[in-house]
Amino acid sequence: MPAGGRRSDDNPFPEVPNLSESKVLTMQEAVSRFVRDGDTVVLEGFTHLIPFAAGHEIIRQRRRDLALVRLTPDLLMDQMVAAGTARKLVFGWLGNPGVGSLHAVRRAVERAYPGPLEIEEYSHFGLLCRYQAAASGLPFFPLRGYRGTDLPRVNPHLKQVTCPFTGETLDAVSALHPDVAIVNAQRADSHGNTQIWGLVGAQREAAFAARRVIVVVEEVVPEDVVRADPNRTQIPSVVVDAVVEEPWSAHPSFVQGYYDRDNAAYLAWDRITRDPAELERYLDEWVHGLPDRAAYRARLGEATQNRLRPGPRLAGPVDYGDYR
């Protein structure tokens, strides 16, 4: 072949037909197939893309004895604890951000109501390092993090290790291999190549760390859409077991470019969670009483959805180049 050029019909890599099958399932199927009683379940998404719809389906299918793992247990974890799905909560920061407490979780921790709840707490950084270790195939991850604090006194999983090069004493956390990770995203192709923009939180680390992965998206898009912009792919198909398409599945949290955080719902939760009977009514009305997210969305109503839709703010396209 002459130097400096190659005709397209010389291409030694013709278009390869995609042989991997579609992983698109309904939420009901995905939870039923991949979430089991007693599992360690990571539900990630830091303020952004919180998997509310998946959590609600887990409640509906009455999963029990789950160890729920999340950097910031918020409304969703309050609901899942109140609904009796959890035996344990592993976390970094527990609260209704900007509003107050998670009263269902507090009732469980402070008064073992309606049952006891085991807790295991880290700093955000510590729990992130646990995901990072598992995702990287390491048994632990070193950090400077807990010196001078009481956290190691109450969490036996926080240990120390000596640096073999400098002799410095470092803190260490063990790898966390969840049975299941559930993460939300803007879009994925049917094989599970998943694209997120805006806050990416710990979704990628959690997905690589987990044995089984469910991705919940606003839209399933053709594979070409993903391949046109590979830098935006946070989670590759090879670690994904199920792709669920459910618009508005992160409400009342937000999805960058799709809908805003529903602050009114976070404020309203403060009233609901203070009263166990009120909370029970909420679960009956918004979780058990609805078959799926489409029904939730219909119940939410057009007016609320319109209030939360942002105006456009487009990024400029970039040129990846055509290297035939």
Partner: peptide, 17 residues
């Protein structure tokens, strides 16, 4: 058996450190 369960550590220990 805490009197009040507060939010926990979040990012604070690492900011302070």
């Amino acid at each position: 058996h805490p009197k009040v369960r507060l939010p926990g550590a979040g990012g604070a220990p690492d900011i302070a450190l």
